[in-house]
Lab assay of single mutants.
Amino acid sequence: MQIFVKTLTGKTITLEVEPSDTIENVKAKIQDKEGIPPDQQRLIFAGKQLEDGRTLSDYNIQKDSTLHLVLR
């Protein structure tokens, strides 16, 4: 499925993911596309910070959802 990741600069990254993918996995995909190390990434969805060990389906993230990427 496709999800979107919006950065603070207003750029939107499109990712191909599975509901069973972990947040860690998603961060690795963002690193592949953007070169941002996962340890600098914070992903936010519906006002919640997403934890590495959980999956997209744990957070009820569905296709065409938009996550927000904050760098630390």
Rank of each mutant, 00 (worst) to 15 (best):
M1Q: 08
Q2G: 10
Q2M: 10
Q2R: 15
Q2E: 11
I3R: 00
F4K: 03
F4I: 08
F4A: 12
V5H: 00
V5S: 01
K6F: 08
T7W: 15
T7K: 04
L8I: 08
L8H: 15
L8F: 04
T9S: 09
T9Q: 04
T9K: 13
T9H: 07
T9I: 07
T9P: 09
G10P: 12
G10F: 07
G10N: 05
G10A: 03
K11Q: 13
K11M: 08
T12W: 08
T12H: 05
T12M: 06
T12A: 13
T12D: 03
T12S: 07
I13H: 11
I13Q: 06
I13E: 03
I13V: 09
I13W: 02
I13N: 07
T14I: 14
T14L: 02
L15Y: 06
L15M: 06
L15I: 14
E16G: 09
V17Y: 10
V17L: 09
E18K: 10
E18N: 14
E18Y: 10
P19T: 13
P19Y: 03
S20G: 11
S20Q: 04
S20R: 14
S20F: 05
D21P: 00
D21F: 15
D21M: 04
T22Y: 09
T22D: 04
T22W: 12
I23V: 15
I23A: 06
I23P: 07
I23N: 02
I23G: 04
I23K: 01
E24Q: 03
E24P: 03
E24I: 08
E24A: 10
E24V: 08
E24S: 12
N25P: 02
N25R: 15
V26Q: 00
K27S: 11
K27F: 12
K27E: 01
A28W: 09
K29Y: 10
K29M: 08
I30Y: 02
I30K: 00
I30L: 11
Q31F: 14
D32I: 08
D32T: 07
D32M: 15
D32P: 02
D32H: 06
D32V: 06
K33F: 15
E34T: 05
E34S: 04
E34M: 04
E34G: 04
G35M: 07
G35S: 11
G35A: 13
G35I: 10
I36V: 06
I36E: 05
P37A: 13
P37H: 05
P38D: 12
D39M: 11
D39I: 04
Q40N: 06
Q40Y: 10
Q40W: 14
Q41L: 06
Q41Y: 09
Q41T: 14
R42Q: 15
R42K: 04
R42I: 07
R42M: 12
R42P: 02
L43E: 00
L43T: 01
L43A: 01
I44G: 02
F45T: 05
F45D: 07
F45Q: 10
A46S: 13
A46Y: 04
A46N: 08
G47P: 01
G47S: 10
G47M: 14
G47I: 03
G47Y: 02
G47R: 10
G47T: 11
G47V: 10
K48F: 13
K48H: 12
Q49A: 06
Q49T: 12
Q49N: 12
L50N: 00
L50H: 00
L50Y: 01
L50P: 01
L50E: 00
L50T: 07
E51I: 02
E51V: 02
D52F: 04
G53L: 10
G53P: 08
G53S: 10
G53I: 04
R54G: 10
R54Y: 11
R54A: 12
R54K: 11
T55M: 12
T55F: 09
T55P: 08
T55E: 15
T55I: 04
L56I: 04
L56M: 11
S57F: 08
S57M: 02
D58V: 07
D58G: 10
Y59G: 01
Y59R: 01
Y59T: 03
Y59W: 04
N60G: 06
N60A: 13
I61F: 04
I61G: 00
I61H: 01
I61P: 01
I61M: 07
Q62P: 11
K63S: 08
K63A: 04
K63P: 09
K63Q: 09
K63V: 15
D64M: 06
D64L: 04
S65T: 04
S65R: 07
S65L: 06
T66G: 12
T66Y: 08
T66E: 05
L67T: 04
L67F: 06
L67H: 01
L67P: 01
H68L: 08
H68W: 01
H68K: 07
H68Y: 02
L71M: 08
L71D: 14
L71F: 03
L71I: 09
R72S: 14
R72L: 15
R72M: 07
R72Q: 10
R72H: 13
